[in-house]
């Protein structure tokens, strides 16, 4: 890694806690490169995370970092952003963290279109607790709590976020790390609620149980199953079966929550002067 990106890491906290083959380090690397591209002011940026393997990433980043409770990162982040809108806020969550226990906060942060950049480390499983199925585990996968394989249907996280009101939605993988950096950078530049799903590998708790091989094999799986949005246009539904889209999936403009709140402050002050 280039030295200029390294300044965004608390190198004294390394090595990290993640297992060999885990993709979280690649996602962390993509985030750090995005910080560099953005020229993030370390003293004016907050990283909030939930609970899970992925959420430990916050502790390795040299910003004001807040490692919260399972599922609640977006709610803490909402408090920070609303209190001090001038602060740039990134939120790191796992798939279970963001879509199961924190699903309600996810849809409401999206609905408010509050200016947060959420990066979701989707390893298709509950990593920290040892491999239980999550709302993003593909149907038919095995997990410690799905010994006969899961019968539940997964969310499509970008679809969910878009339907809930997010104004920037993207997806990439740890294989497509450069694209991931680009998307995180674009999401952070976008004013409003941005969600970037990062597909990452958990060979120990997901791959092994589902015969997907090691970390390298899982990266290759990502390479083979991800289809960039531009290329998907030319593909038939038949060709897209079992594949997933990556790239910028949705982008629109809508009033941002803290901007609206500042307008509300002025309105309330005008009304109170009149009273």
């Amino acid at each position: 890694m280039q030295n200029s990106a390294e300044k965004y890491l608390r190198t004294e906290k390394l090595p990290h806690i993640w297992c060999p083959g885990c993709g979280n380090g690649i996602v962390l690397g993509a985030m750090v490169r995005a910080f560099e591209k953005l020229g993030c002011d370390q003293d004016n940026t907050v990283i909030v995370s939930g609970i899970g393997c992925s959420s430990r990433a916050a502790g390795y980043m040299d910003f004001n970092t807040l490692h919260t409770t399972h599922g609640r990162a977006l709610a803490f982040a909402t408090g920070i952003k609303l209190a001090r809108p001038e602060i740039t806020v990134f939120v790191i969550m796992g798939d279970g963290d963001s879509s199961s226990i924190g699903g309600n906060h996810l849809i409401h942060a999206a609905r408010r279109n509050i200016d947060l950049t959420a990066v979701i480390f989707n390893n298709s499983i509950y990593g920290m607790t040892g491999g239980q199925y999550s709302p993003l585990t593909p149907t038919g996968s095995r997990a410690t709590t799905a010994p006969y394989s899961t019968i539940e249907r997964p969310f499509d996280l970008p679809d969910l976020a878009r339907a809930a009101g997010a104004t920037y939605v993207a997806r990439s993988t740890s294989y497509h790390a450069a694209m991931l950096t680009k998307l995180i950078t674009a999401g952070a530049t976008h004013k409003g609620f941005s969600l970037i799903e990062a597909i990452t590998a958990c060979p120990v708790s997901f791959g092994r149980r589902n015969k997907m091989g090691d970390g390298y094999d899982m990266l290759m799986w990502q390479k083979e199953h991800a289809v960039p949005v531009e290329k998907a246009k030319d593909k038939t539904p038949e060709e897209m079966r079992g594949k997933f889209l990556i790239g910028e999936l949705y982008k629109t403009e809508a009033p941002e929550y803290t901007d609206l709140y500042n307008q509300l402050i002025r309105k309330s002050q005008m009304i109170s002067r009149e009273e």
């Binding site: 609640r72 803490f76 408090g79 952003k81 709140y261 002050q269």
Partner: peptide, 27 residues
């Protein structure tokens, strides 16, 4: 808001508590 302060009705009490902690940490 008249005092320049912030009020937010959150989606539940869990997130309310979280937002309050976040705001306090922000000062």
């Amino acid at each position: 808001p008249v005092l320049g302060g912030k009020f937010i009705q959150m989606e539940d009490e869990i997130s309310s508590m979280a937002a309050v902690i976040g705001a306090s940490l922000a000062g």
